[in-house]
């Protein structure tokens, strides 16, 4: 009798007890869920809703009753040509900011990578601009470039580069220059630190071997240093491109997209459409086109750079 009961109980116990893998799975799911819930709620769902909204007439007044408008958000942006202006402004801004900061960052990194006393102090000093909040960066550069009393405007006019009283942030071409300067100034320290870390990961023996083989310094840089830190360069530059596509704070506070759309990038345009004109549909349409172009660009860059990796 007892034996029989025991036999009956054992199998049921077994089926209730979870295997170790199953317990692991549950643990993994529980631990990941807060992160996934936050990312899905704050990023995932809005992306999906944004794509949906971009096909509707979705204004503040029509929020409860959005109307399908036959791609009008897209066709309007293309017909008026404004979307091309936004893309062009964004590309100009991103290209100049990333290229200029890469050159400055690499110069500083190479200088700091050589043997010198107090290297870490120099690195710290160079990093200071990166600690200044973006809004402050915008205000600070507006003050430096202020037409009548701005120090930089004064110095540049003394050298004869600009006229005294130049309205940097309201000038059709200088407005773009001023936001580029401010963005480069804020961002190059971060890139410099990355490049410096990359340079320090280049094995010294390789450069020495190249030197023994008669390579000069430029050749060593081009054929040893750059290929060795290729991964760092790629990652850093892609991150910089993505971040500058997103740039809002500095542009919005210095020029707000002006004068007459001369500095209206995709992020400024999407913001103005949605939150100044309350046309959520068009704002989302800009976002969708931006996502498609940026995603496509990064995909192409990855394929291209994967190919060029093979060459080395």
């Amino acid at each position: 009798m007892n034996n029989l009961q025991a036999e009956r109980i054992r199998p049921t116990q077994k089926s209730f007890a979870l295997s170790k893998t199953a317990k692991d799975r549950i643990f993994v799911a529980v631990m990941l869920s807060p992160a996934l819930v936050i990312l899905v709620l704050v990023i995932g769902a809005p992306i999906v809703k944004g794509i949906w909204m971009s096909f509707f007439e979705y204004t503040l007044a029509m929020r409860t009753n959005p109307q399908w408008n036959n791609f009008e958000n897209y066709t309007k942006l293309i017909k008026t040509g404004e979307i091309f202006t936004y893309f062009l402004n964004t590309l100009l801004f991103v290209a100049f900011v990333v290229a200029i900061q890469a050159v400055i960052a690499m110069t500083v990194a190479l200088l700091l990578n050589s043997k010198m006393r107090g290297r870490s102090i120099y690195r710290s000093l160079f990093l200071i601009p990166w600690t200044i909040p973006s809004v402050v960066v915008a205000l600070l550069w507006m003050w430096l470039l202020q037409p009548q009393y701005g120090v930089l405007n004064y110095l540049l006019s003394r050298v004869g580069l600009v006229e005294q009283g130049t309205q940097w942030t309201q000038h059709p071409s200088l407005a773009m220059v001023s936001i580029i300067i401010a963005a480069v100034w804020r961002q190059f320290p971060m890139m410099m630190v990355m490049f410096l870390a990359g340079l320090q990961s280049v094995p010294l023996e390789l450069a020495e071997a190249a030197a023994i083989d008669g390579a000069n310094r430029r050749q060593i840089f081009r054929h040893v240093t750059i290929p060795c830190m290729r991964a760092v360069l790629d990652t850093t530059i892609i991150i910089a491109i993505i971040n500058n596509f997103q740039m809002f704070t500095i542009i919005y506070n210095m020029t707000a997209g002006g004068p007459v759309d001369k500095t209206t990038t995709l992020s400024i345009a999407a913001y103005v459409k949605a939150f100044s004109q309350f046309d959520f549909g068009s704002g989302s349409a800009i976002g969708v086109m931006w996502l498609v172009v940026l995603g496509g660009g990064i995909y192409l860059y990855n394929r291209f750079s994967a190919k060029s990796h093979d060459i080395y």
């Binding site: 944004g50 997103q246 995709l266 992020s267 913001y271 995603g295």
Partner: peptide, 12 residues
């Protein structure tokens, strides 16, 4: 890499 401003519109 998702456009922050675009996310913000529907998030709002």
């Amino acid at each position: 890499m998702f456009p922050l401003v675009a996310i913000l519109i529907s998030l709002f």
